[in-house]
Structure formats: structure tokens, C-alpha cells
Design a protein around this nucleic acid. Structure first.
Lengths: 196, 196
DNA sequence: GTCTATATGAAGATAGAC
DNA sequence: GTCTATCTTCATATAGAC
């Protein structure tokens, strides 16, 4: 997670969360990953925390608020990488930087990646919740680097799925994180025609 | 769907389904795609069919049976492609064949791909239900073509995610199916170092 | 193959005490 | 911050008539 400051980095984040809220978010994320958002009840979250549902409802007013907070929390690392990439000038250098950071983040948070990219509830949230919308657009802009041709777009779509899949896939479940990272960066670079 | 025969192709398939069952499966698949399996209730399926829940329970004894039938139904096309690839000799030729068919299938069924690859309930089913287990192993064997090195495995994991992502991704939602297929095959070939 | 009606439990959510 | 208790709605599932 590697998050020094509390929680409010300008773009994302509806503010810092209390200790109890952070615990709730962590427990919820675990369950979202395993069962999906719809497959996770507040009872399950409460059980994981060893408290009652009412205690969870004291931290967040609705289940949706928990989902928003959890997604926010997971996107913070990506936002930092995006900030850095936007500071660097456009072109292959920025893309290479972004790519390497995305790979490392994806491996670090590999358990969450699948849910973030594919859970129907989260996907809808990412598309409808304003702050997430804007964040995703920034991300796509950086990924495309100004090139909106079909080739570039298919490549960007492929690469985001490829990385997401490669950190979750049963085929590579037994690989060492270092080996996986090395291979992923090498092959992503090759796919993107970046100097390796 | 392009499925001439009823439903029993040796490996998968617990048998042919009645007309009413096929309608139920189709409605369920639609909803699974949009809301996920856990986010889809039998009431929603019944409403989509314009009947009551009891009528749906007459076709299938449990929700899980519907999920199994739906997944089976979606994997039939992939099984045919796999059959064909296994007949061809091993090596790049078989892989190239498989890849092209997978790309076309993925585009044809693009709405279902995300759910099949990532819905937690389906993923668990794919891993635990015997016939699905065996099918997935066949698929991985064909994908790897005998090479079990980390490089080959990461590449296989990446490519399956890349294709799955490329047919679902918002970035390419407005592309023509032909353009998408062309780009996908071209870029997949390049990634796999296949002659293009 | 479809219906009405119903059983049983679990979901999201709230009230109010400690 | 946590509890017990409760509300309402919805979930899966069944019984039995048409």
C-alpha cells in the first residue's frame, strides 16, 4: 500500500479515514476480492472484523460508501504513478515510467486487481462516480500518449488487461514476485515497442 | 453462438437442454454479464423471461445449475476451437490457429468474456467443477504448447487477459468488429512472435 | 410449463442503550 | 465505538393447483 499521508491527495479521496474505518476498508477489500462486491454482505464484513453489523454501519452509512472508500484506497498508488508520469514529458519516456510503476503496483496489489478491473459493481462505480471518471480519463490519456488511432487504443486495452491478468492468473500463481515482475516488464516493453 | 448440434460434445455438456431451458440460460447469461452472478437473482431472471420464479425453478433445480449450464454453453465454441487445434500438430501452427479462433470467438461473445474470466462465482466453478477443470487444463496445455518456462507462462497469462480485455474495454467500445479483430490478431501475433 | 401461495432465512438498514 | 433488537425487503426454494 505504501501510503505515507493519510488519504487526501487532491484528485481522489473524500478525506482521511479513522482507524476503525481503515480496518473496515481492509476487511471489505479482502472479501470483495474473494466473493465480489455483490457476493459480500455487511454481515460478512462485520464477522471478519469481529463486530456486529451495527458497528460497521457506524463507520459507513451504506454499503456503497464502503465500496467507494475501498476503490479510492486502492487507486491511490496508481494516482501517484500517474502524477509522476504526467510530470515527465510526453512520449516513450513517460509511458515507460508509467508502465514500470503500474507493473509493480499491480504485483503489489495483485489480489485486488481483478476486482478493480472487472467487478460489475466497481466497474459501474468507476464509470459513474465523478472523481473516478476523471481519474480514469487521466489514466487513458497517459496510456495513449496523444495517439487515438485504433492501433493505439487496442494496444492500450490489451496491455491493461494483460498486466491485470498476468498478476492473477493461475498459470503464474507459483512464480516468484521478482521473476514475475521481470518477465512482465520485459514482455510489456516488447509489446509496446519500447527500448528494453 | 454458432452451435449446430443440441449440446453434448463429449467433453463438456451435461446434455441437451429444452427450448425453455435454453431461453432461461440466455436470459441468465445476459444478467450475469451485467450484474455478475451474485448480483443476479432468480427473480431478475424470471422477470427477464416474463414468467414467475417458480417457472424458472421448473427448468433448473437451483441457481447453481443455471450457472453451470450457462458456463457450459459459453465454453462450447472454445471447445470446438480447442479440438481443432489439438488435431493440428503442436507448435506455432496449432497455436496460430487456436489464437485466431479465440480472437474471433472472444469478439463474437465479447459481452460474456469478462464474466467468464473474472466473475468470482464462475472462476470458482471453473476451478472446482470436474468437467471444467479438465477443460481448462486442455486449454492451458494448448496455450503453452509444451513450454512451461516462466516466460511462456507469463506470456500465456498475459495474452489471455489481453484478448479478454481488448474485447470489453471502453477504450475500444466504438471500434468496428472487423477493425478490432484485425488489430487484435495482428498485435497478438506480434506479441507471440508468430509470422504475420 | 406456468401459476399462486408460502416457508425460511439473510440482506440492507435504523433506533436506542451502554 | 459497540451492542441488542428490530424493521423491511429480498433471497433461495418448495407445495400443489391449472
Amino acid at each position: 500500500m505504501t501510503r505515507a499521508r493519510p488519504s487526501t491527495p487532491a484528485g481522489l479521496g473524500s478525506g482521511p479515514y479513522s482507524e476503525a474505518q481503515e480496518r473496515t476498508i481492509a476487511a471489505a477489500l479482502d472479501l470483495f476480492v474473494e466473493h465480489g462486491v455483490s457476493g459480500t454482505s455487511l454481515q460478512m464484513i462485520a464477522d471478519a472484523l469481529g463486530v456486529t453489523k451495527a458497528a460497521v454501519y457506524h463507520q459507513f452509512n451504506t454499503k456503497e460508501e464502503i465500496v467507494v472508500a475501498a476503490v479510492e484506497c486502492e487507486l491511490l498508488g496508481l494516482e501517484a504513478a500517474l502524477d509522476a508520469a504526467e510530470v515527465a514529458e510526453r512520449g516513450p519516456r513517460a509511458l515507460d515510467l508509467l508502465m514500470a510503476q503500474v507493473v509493480h503496483l499491480a504485483i503489489e496489489q495483485h489480489r485486488m486487481v481483478g476486482a478493480l478491473q472487472h467487478d460489475p459493481v466497481i466497474v459501474r462505480l468507476l464509470a459513474e462516480h465523478r472523481p473516478f471518471q476523471e481519474f480514469m480519463q487521466r489514466l487513458y490519456r497517459a496510456l495513449l500518449g496523444g495517439d487515438a488511432s485504433p492501433e493505439a487504443r487496442v494496444r492500450a486495452a490489451m496491455i491493461s488487461g494483460a498486466i491485470g491478468s498476468a498478476v492473477t492468473h493461475p498459470l503464474v500463481a507459483d512464480l516468484d514476485a521478482d521473476v514475475l515482475a521481470d518477465q512482465l516488464i520485459r514482455q510489456t516493453r516488447r509489446f509496446l515497442d519500447l527500448p528494453g
